[in-house]
Nucleic acid binder design. Structure first.
Lengths: 181, 181
DNA sequence: TAGTTTGTACAGTTTTTTCCGTTCAAACGA
DNA sequence: TCGTTTGAACGGAAAAAACTGTACAAACTA
């Protein structure tokens, strides 16, 4: 058996595994396959390169490369004399994991916080409204307790993301080797 | 304006926010809406209750309740004299966040680890094979370095999940109030 | 045992997402 | 200036996912 063939097989296995797990990043398998291909490619790639490599349209490459750069899984590269845009996979997986939180979870925290604040204010005014009957006020009190609880939860989550973003998490759960950070 | 109406509005806002962010748990908005409804419902619900509450088919309720229980966002409840299955939202959001990691990320870590181990073994045998040409061996060496790196990353991720599962994370990022855990 | 009730499997339909081909605007080169 | 190249917007086709109604098996009731 040819060595090159064997080499490709080992790569394909990893790429396929990435493709089947990238839903954790909110991306579809083919986008994962694209990322995996870029990860093993030691040179930056153009959209046309990817089109050829993956047998998909340039339009697809364009949109999925955008999705990947939004999550900072891929970044633009520069090479003198090349007019086309070049892209390469970011090589820091720890940072990619952190970026996922920064981008996706932080947004969710923010959206929830806004809703909770609004609803809490309305519920407070409701329990202070003398025209509202007692039974409704009791329900409102229950809801207030729930919203205070999840507000605290999101506040915790926010601090958790801080700990990732600041890299303090590595003091608590250290990396195996210290070549990074 | 009626107080009940106002109360419902505050709930709807939160439910809708949950629905629009539950994709972080790999669930669709309507499943999120179902969870939100259960969260505010102070009594356990049957599938028929949910059908009525959400105006969706019983089949949908059945499948999505399963998805929610798989992620431990919903659990079965018991009530004497009631033959139908009862479900209620779990009330510990911190634990739900942790369970997400235990269930989804741990699985991904495991799948990646298997693939990496296999591919690494094959690459090692390739570089030790005297019939393989030098150039391929050099490529293999590059791949080995990459795989060792991501193996270390997943090993770190595994320890990170440990820290969540064991609740040690709360020593590092404490909850606001100490009524939990 | 026969008749209900309850949850889920299955097949079909609707909705959403993914992907492609074409088109177009911006950047570059002659 | 006018062509050429490149990346992305847009509409439509294909694929996937969500949802429904029917059918059925298991558990309960009489």
């Amino acid at each position: 058996m040819d060595g090159t063939e064997k080499l490709n097989k080992t790569r394909e296995r990893i790429i396929e595994t990435i493709a089947q797990n990238i839903h954790l990043y909110g991306l579809s398998p083919s986008v994962g396959r694209q990322y995996g291909t870029m990860f093993f490619h030691n040179e930056p790639l153009t959209l046309d390169d990817m089109t050829e490599e993956l047998g998909m349209s340039k339009t697809s490459m364009s949109t999925s490369v955008r999705a990947l750069t939004d999550l900072k899984l891929v970044e633009r590269a520069w090479k003198k004399g090349v007019r086309k845009d070049l892209y390469q996979a970011t090589d820091d997986w720890y940072q990619s994991f952190i970026d996922l939180f920064s981008i996706k979870w932080r947004r969710s925290i923010s959206l929830h916080s806004v809703s909770i604040r609004k609803s809490l204010a309305e519920l407070e005014s409701l329990v202070n409204d003398p025209t509202v009957i007692e039974e409704v006020k009791q329900d409102a009190q229950l809801d207030i307790a729930k919203l205070v609880y999840i507000r605290d939860y999101f506040e915790w989550l926010d601090r958790l993301v801080d700990v990732f973003e600041s890299h303090d998490i590595f003091n608590f759960v250290p990396m195996k080797d210290s070549s990074k950070d």
